[in-house]
Nucleic acid binder design. Structure first.
Lengths: 216, 216
DNA sequence: ATCCGCCCTTTGTGATCACATCTTGGCTTA
DNA sequence: TAAGCCAAGATGTGATCACAAAGGGCGGAT
């Protein structure tokens, strides 16, 4: 037996399966900043050899979702405050543009879906569930931006989210807020009103404010 | 001999060396859009096995510099017009911000260096040397943006350049212009004058105009 | 008690190989 | 002549292994 028969839990290639699982964990804050990973550990967890584990890790490293030390050690990134502010500025830049492009195509059904997702966000906040909060919050944004029909821009935005994943977990983990997300309501209101400057401001603020409070 | 003794032409790891060479080729337009590559071919060219060749290729694919077909075939991307315009918009968005952040720190020595680089750009245009043109043009932009002290943003911009590399080659290859770059002069003039709105406009125009003329 | 050095374990790297799949070129057949 | 098919070569995937180097922990010296 030189070849593993295929786990059958998916039709995907091994390295892609590993990549998706790890990516999801990182983006949604399952991993804390500075968390160390090993290729053999990943391989064992997903029942694959080191080869696909390495490919998945290198791909994530290329996207900034993981950092590799000079000796090849892999860990989740621990971002400096400057880097966090820079990534927040990038989010603002790209996501404001995406929202602006999505607005002309945002019909009632979309706004309704955003409303529904936002309820999930509120619930996650109420339960102080950081992972659910991050996941539903990003789903809110992604749902809106999908309408922009700008896949390259959306990919860029997701790359930034990925880089901020572990940091967002650390940030929202120590959050003690219970209020539902105010700026999401502003976004929805601006969409309803067809108020483009208002939408831009609401998105920029929503994206920026969360990250701003950890500049300590 | 199970292990190759190390080519000695560099102290870098094999996969990194392959990655850098290929990245440079792609970014500076050595490869035409749609150009096919094979792992064994890359491995033979750089005297490494398929393993580091695959890592380099996957990394470049993650950055959008290469595309992989469903069967894993690797080729340089052939971009649609929509994708090109989107990437141009992304360039404008990010690079305007970078230029704006660089301006307060742009002292005389920097402007002088930009001037020098721009002479190289003019020379490349005069010789109709597409690769030299792309290389010096990007060096002009990178030199300016380096002053912004925003590594994450610069990395994003470079990723976009990478994705546009083969397309820029195809574009400028059929260019018949001989005039030196007008908008670079505007950028330098705006920097000298401390004219921030003028700088933003000049960068936006410079970045956008080149890609715009291939929307055929 | 603390710091330094050494050894063993852990870990990443890259070569090689078996295998499955895709591609392609030529041949056959209608 | 053209369309279809088969076989052989080409190509990507993932497992395994040998090796080098980095880390960690333990013991001894001061």
């Amino acid at each position: 037996m030189t070849q593993t028969p295929r786990p059958l839990d998916t039709h995907l290639l091994a390295h892609d399966r590993v990549y998706r699982h790890l990516r999801s964990r990182i983006m949604y804050g399952d991993l804390a900043p500075g968390q160390a990973l090993t290729l053999r550990g990943i391989g064992k967890e997903f029942a694959v050899s080191m080869t696909p584990a390495r490919e998945a890790v290198r791909r994530l490293a290329a996207e900034g979702a993981l950092t590799m030390s000079a000796s090849g050690r892999v860990s989740t990134p621990a971002l400096s405050n400057e880097r966090i502010e820079e990534l927040a500025a990038l989010r603002a830049l790209i996501e404001v543009e995406l929202a602006s492009r999505a607005m002309p195509r945002a019909h009632y059904a979309l706004i309704d879906r955003l409303q529904t997702i936002n309820n999930a966000v509120s619930e996650a906040v109420a339960h102080r569930d950081a992972v659910s909060y991050i996941r539903s919050n990003l789903e809110f944004h992604r749902t809106l931006y999908l309408r922009a029909q700008a896949p390259a821009m959306l990919a860029m935005a997701e790359t930034v989210w990925l880089q901020l994943g572990p940091t967002m977990r650390a940030l929202y983990g120590r959050l003690r807020r219970t209020e539902p997300p105010h700026f999401h309501k502003l976004i929805i209101a601006a969409l309803r009103a067809g108020d483009e400057p208002g939408l831009r401001l609401a998105v920029r603020t929503d994206v920026t404010q969360g990250l701003r409070m950890l500049a300590t």
